[in-house]
């Protein structure tokens, strides 16, 4: 069984990979301002080390737009920026709060008894 004490093991070495929830990553990327697709990919890569594939990114964009959590802005040349909506911000806050609780609970369990 893998020891939970090896907290210094990188995510690559542990085989768990990077965090990947494309819609959440897109929402988090847009939280500090509108971005077009390429800027989102680069921003998400800097934020958490996950490089979204172009198909994955646009799959997430299409579904987030469908849910009205993001909205398109007028196209700049052929690139179209997107911005997060008020409802999208609310959803992002709720999801991140849940994740924070999860991280907190997980970290507490890793503390020495």
């Amino acid at each position: 069984m893998r020891s939970t004490r090896h907290v210094d093991v990188s995510t690559e070495e542990s085989g768990l990979g990077h965090y990947s929830d494309p819609p959440l990553l897109v929402l988090a990327s847009l939280a500090n301002g509108p971005k077009h697709g390429h800027a989102m990919i680069e921003d998400i890569l800097r934020m958490c080390g996950t490089r979204l594939g172009p198909g994955t990114l646009y799959g997430a964009i299409a579904r987030l737009e469908q849910q009205k959590w993001i909205e398109p802005l007028p196209a700049e040349d052929r690139r179209r920026p997107y911005r997060i909506t008020g409802e999208g911000l609310r959803v992002l806050r709720a999801r991140l709060s849940t994740l924070r609780q999860f991280v907190q609970a997980g970290m507490e369990r890793l503390e020495p008894q």
């Binding site: 697709g37 390429h38 172009p54 990114l57």
Partner: peptide, 10 residues
Amino acid sequence: RYGAEFEALL
């Protein structure tokens, strides 16, 4: 809907 911008991204 997404073709032009997706092509630009690719």
